[in-house]
């Protein structure tokens, strides 16, 4: 948090250089991240492409500080012994590392509902991918705007 001016400058230059390269080559950091996210989803879903629906993701439209962004996920399911939600993986596409957390439920959960707080490095999409006990996979995506450039600590 306590960056010296030189470190800050170095980082800023690094970012500008990165952007210049991106512009020249027509590729982007975000694309690489999308690949990471795809890989993570495939590993989690066993190669299945998630269907839309069933998952409800609740996040603020604007996060006042990226250090603590509330996230709530809810999945429609009877949560019975033979039909329940096994896991929900949370991913943040544009974080340095996309994985945020993975919730594991059981029929004893009663409802597949969970909330936590996460760090977001910048404005980006956050995904929740749910895996059901029968192997079906669903996902939901929200965009969250992250406020950067406030007063320092």
């Amino acid at each position: 948090m306590n960056k010296s001016k030189r470190q800050f400058l170095g980082r800023t230059l690094g970012v500008s250089a990165g952007m210049a390269v991106t512009a020249l080559l027509g590729s982007s950091r975000a694309l690489a991240s999308v690949e990471d996210v795809q890989k993570a989803i495939e590993a989690f879903s066993g190669g299945k492409t998630p269907a839309e629906g069933v998952v409800t993701l609740t996040t603020p439209e604007i996060a006042e500080n990226g250090n603590s962004v509330p996230i709530s996920v809810s999945v429609d399911s009877p949560m019975s012994e033979d039909d329940y939600v096994e896991s929900v993986m949370i991913l943040a596409e544009d974080n340095p590392s996309a994985l945020v957390a993975t919730f594991h439920f059981s029929p004893a959960s009663g409802e597949a509902v969970a909330s936590t707080r996460m760090r977001l490095a910048r404005t980006q999409n956050v995904l929740a991918v749910a895996k059901m006990s029968n192997g079906d996979v669903y996902s939901a995506t929200n965009n969250i705007k992250v406020t950067i450039g406030g007063c320092g600590g």
């Binding site: 603590s68 949560m79 945020v100 957390a101 919730f103 009663g110 509902v113 707080r117």
Partner: peptide
């Protein structure tokens, strides 16, 4: 829950139990 470094300081969880 399996946590990665993107979980905020002072981890908070809310969930259900039957």
């Amino acid at each position: 829950c399996d946590m990665d470094p993107a979980v905020s300081a002072n981890p908070y969880f809310e969930f259900k139990a039957k």
